[in-house]
């Protein structure tokens, strides 16, 4: 690869960073201040130099940010362009890193703070790593926050997000949220309009309350719960789902209780029509 191609390749993977508003305000103020012809030439010269300098600084900054940390203070926010597939807004008080990306994937590391991702692409092109696991875009818009301890919250507004950690996966559709825990991974997702008792019960592993409080839509929660409770509790969860909505053809109680992956997927795909 020659230098030009290498630079092009690097640039294609670099995020765009918005210039601070103050820079444009300064330039406009300088241009507006005096309009005499003699000064105008000087001002245009100044503007050209300023813009050139911005381009250089912008490239330098972005170039150095790949693989390095981006941090917003308590009042600033910025936007990263994710290739051609979307944007990530970085909220105040956030620390993220843009690691060197592999072809066919875009990746961010969120150390703390909050990001809002708007991605329009086939699934599994955009990943966000956190202390609790990895958020995998399945064509979606979502907010992901993480505190200093690594405790996080994923809130999905459109599409799906898969949150994974060492084989533990939570599928979070639009309108649902999921807490995340360092060294534990994703919690059980719940719809934002679920009862407060159900949400509280998820934090306390109070299965009786979760089962009693579940509506048809909360089969999202129950489908995940089935895979997380001890084997002897699975039948209660299965029965509650079956009581809320008919079990589709191809899903047998026996296979579901054994957590057969194909059976669970088939069931999830059908239950999703109620979510």
């Amino acid at each position: 690869m020659d230098d030009r191609e290498e630079v092009k390749s690097v640039l294609e993977h670099l995020p765009l960073v918005q210039a601070p508003d103050a820079i444009w305000t300064s330039i406009e103020a300088a241009l507006d201040e005096h309009r005499s012809p003699a000064r105008r030439q000087w001002q245009w010269g100044f503007a050209a130099v300023a813009v050139s300098a911005l381009l250089v600084v912008g490239y330098w900054t972005v170039g150095h940010r790949t693989g390095q940390w981006i941090e917003t203070d308590s009042k600033s926010r910025t936007t990263l362009r994710i290739g051609e597939i979307g944007f990530v807004e970085i909220e105040p008080g956030t620390r993220v890193r843009v690691p060197a990306t592999q072809p066919g994937e875009h990746r961010l590391t969120l150390a703390r703070g909050e990001i809002r991702a708007k991605i329009s692409a086939p699934p599994r092109l955009f990943f966000v790593d956190t202390a609790s696991g990895t958020a995998i875009d399945l064509g979606c818009e979502y907010t992901l926050s993480d505190d200093e301890l690594g405790l996080g919250l994923l809130q999905v507004t459109k599409g799906w997000v898969s949150f994974q950690w060492k084989g533990v996966e939570s599928l979070v559709p639009a309108g649902a949220s999921c807490r995340t825990y360092p060294k534990i991974g994703p919690g059980i997702p719940y719809f934002d309009d679920a009862s407060q008792r159900l949400k509280d019960a998820l934090g306390n592993d109070a299965i009786d309350v979760i089962l009693a409080e579940s509506r048809v839509r909360d089969t999202l929660t129950l489908w995940h719960l089935l895979q997380r409770v001890p084997a002897e509790e699975r039948a209660r969860v299965y029965d509650r789902i079956a009581a809320l909505t008919p079990v589709p053809d191809g899903v047998s109680r026996d296979k579901a209780l054994r957590l057969d992956p194909e059976t669970l997927k088939l069931w999830k795909d059908e239950l999703a029509w109620k979510w």
Binding site: S120, A121, P122, P123, L138, G139, C140, E141, K158, G159, W160, P173, A174, G175, D269, A272, W273, K274, W275
Partner: peptide
């Protein structure tokens, strides 16, 4: 028909749809 949220379609093109149905 059965109606559902866009996620039910498993199709990312529909994520902004008002609803999906089958």
């Amino acid at each position: 028909f059965t109606i559902g949220n866009p996620v039910a379609s498993q199709d990312f093109h529909f994520k902004t749809a008002a609803f999906v149905f089958r």
